[in-house]
């Protein structure tokens, strides 16, 4: 499901269009707010508050009863709703497999391609420094 937070709303919507979606309703209408982002002193020590981020959330219920929650960075409420819908679908016996196959797997593939490309560009800037012996002058 983490892959959905990394996708654009439009990409998720486009993938969902291939599914014959069951009836569903908003349990919580999309809303935007803040989450305080926490980090750790020195990277691994006691926590501290770094600063906030905008976050959107929503909840969706399928007619068959499954409840899905959607959370994502940013102010795109529609994306949160789509993630909630996917979260509900993935729990459904009838749609779980199709969601994984037609929505999540292709988006994961796309994310991996993007990350691999970025990692290769980064790798090309790996450097070997040689130490020069300090002269007397």
């Amino acid at each position: 499901m983490a892959v959905l937070a990394h996708a654009e709303a439009g990409e998720i919507a486009a993938r969902l269009r291939d599914l014959a979606l069951p009836a569903h309703q908003d349990l919580r209408a999309p809303e935007s707010g803040l989450v305080m982002l926490r980090s750790r002193v020195g990277g691994d020590g006691a926590p501290f508050n770094l600063g906030e981020a905008t976050v959107s959330r929503a909840a969706v219920r399928l007619a068959s009863g499954e409840v899905g929650f959607g959370y994502t960075l940013g102010r795109d409420g529609e994306k949160a709703r789509l993630i909630a819908l996917c979260d509900a679908l993935v729990q459904s016996r009838d749609f779980g497999a199709a969601l994984e196959r037609d929505v999540i797997a292709p988006l994961r593939e796309q994310l991996m391609v993007r990350r691999k490309r970025a990692a290769e560009e980064t790798a090309a800037t790996k450097v070997d420094f040689y130490t020069m012996v300090r002269g007397e002058g």
Binding site: V35, M36, L37, T122
Partner: peptide, 23 residues
């Protein structure tokens, strides 16, 4: 602007050791 939004809560501490480093 930030003062106009409700706060949903606090994140888990991020793990900078697991960063996908670009530099």
């Amino acid at each position: 602007f930030r003062a106009t939004l409700p706060r949903f809560g606090t994140s888990e501490p991020v793990d900078t050791g697991a960063m996908r480093v670009q530099r």
